[in-house]
């Protein structure tokens, strides 16, 4: 049987069902059950991200999650799902840019930037929740800053879980249950916690592990930072599971007055601002649509 390790640069991956071929040009990442490659479609040279896995059901779920969520902005386009040598592969829109882990480090992300980003994620997750789902494995590595198109995009949707179902895919740092704060259940509190932790990691410039520190130690760390009390309180409340809904969390962040002159020139901040404006427009259009319907 063909082994996944045998895929190398220049390998052609051809689908059993749609007969389209992709030439592998770069390894983008490797996980426990599969890999992601940058590839070129042989027909027209289009650059794509090709995710290949020995666990077919994960990619089947992800493909349908992406097509279900395609109406939201901030979701990469799912191009096709196919099989090759017994492996399942998913072809996705390739996004050029950095994921948020690039922005973890002292002084790399302003607190204002982190709050705006939190707003975007809370907004997106509330839309996902509105469709009856919860994205359980949200972490900096899965959120990309798409520089070319100036947008924030969540790239990994394999952890999309039905509302109130058990969480199967998570990363301990962003998982409320690993910290002993709540249950490992796909609900709004679970997502609020994950977003709060992402913001905390960005603001503090370092990651935390539930194996070595307690949630109280994290909140103590937050209390010692220079960022405004309002921001600190929201982060702590989020990490302690005090927001019942994403809307409450979003409203709390939206109510902050944290316009930060120093971050005006920050490239990521600009992208975040544009995405937020797009999100607001999307919300407005949804309401307008609804008003027209009634």
């Amino acid at each position: 049987m063909f082994k996944m390790e045998d895929i190398h640069l220049g390998s052609d991956i051809c689908g059993r069902w749609h007969n389209r071929c992709y030439e592998v040009s770069k390894l983008l990442g490797r996980g426990g059950t599969g890999s992601v490659f940058l590839a070129q479609r042989v027909d027209d040279g289009k650059k794509v991200a090709l995710k290949i896995s020995c666990v077919g059901e994960d990619l089947i779920y992800e493909y349908h999650s992406l097509t279900d969520m395609a109406c939201l902005s901030m979701v990469p386009e799912a191009i096709e799902l196919d099989e090759w040598h017994g492996y399942t592969f998913l072809v996705l829109e390739y996004i050029e840019g950095y994921d948020l882990s690039y922005y973890i480090g002292a002084g790399k992300c302003s607190y204002a930037g982190a709050v705006r980003l939190g707003c975007i994620l809370a907004f997106l997750m509330s839309k996902v929740w509105g469709k009856g789902y919860c994205l359980t494995d949200v972490k900096p590595e899965n959120v990309m800053v798409d520089i070319a198109n100036r947008r924030i995009i969540v790239i990994d949707w394999s952890s999309l879980t039905e509302a109130d179902a058990p969480v199967k895919e998570f990363t301990p740092t962003y998982d409320i249950a690993s910290w002993g704060v709540g249950r490992r259940l796909a609900d709004q509190r679970y997502m609020v916690f994950a977003i709060s932790m992402i913001m905390t990691v960005l603001i503090m410039g370092k990651s935390y592990s539930p194996v070595s520190v307690s949630i109280d130690e994290v909140t103590e760390d937050i209390k010692r930072t220079k960022c405004p009390v309002g921001v600190r309180n929201i982060l702590i409340a989020g990490l302690k599971g005090r927001y019942d809904t994403l809307q409450q969390f979003y409203n709390a962040m939206n109510g902050l007055d944290i316009y930060d002159q120093s971050s005006e020139n920050d490239r990521m901040d600009k992208i975040i601002n544009i995405t937020l404006a797009a999100a607001a427009l999307f919300a407005f259009l949804s309401i307008a649509n609804w008003l027209i319907l009634i």
């Binding site: 426990g32 998570f170 301990p172």
Partner: peptide
Amino acid sequence: WQMVPLGMLSATMCTVTYR
């Protein structure tokens, strides 16, 4: 089965069992 670094043990035990 899966091979993982220690930090990913808990998440992996969960995914391996579910899978």
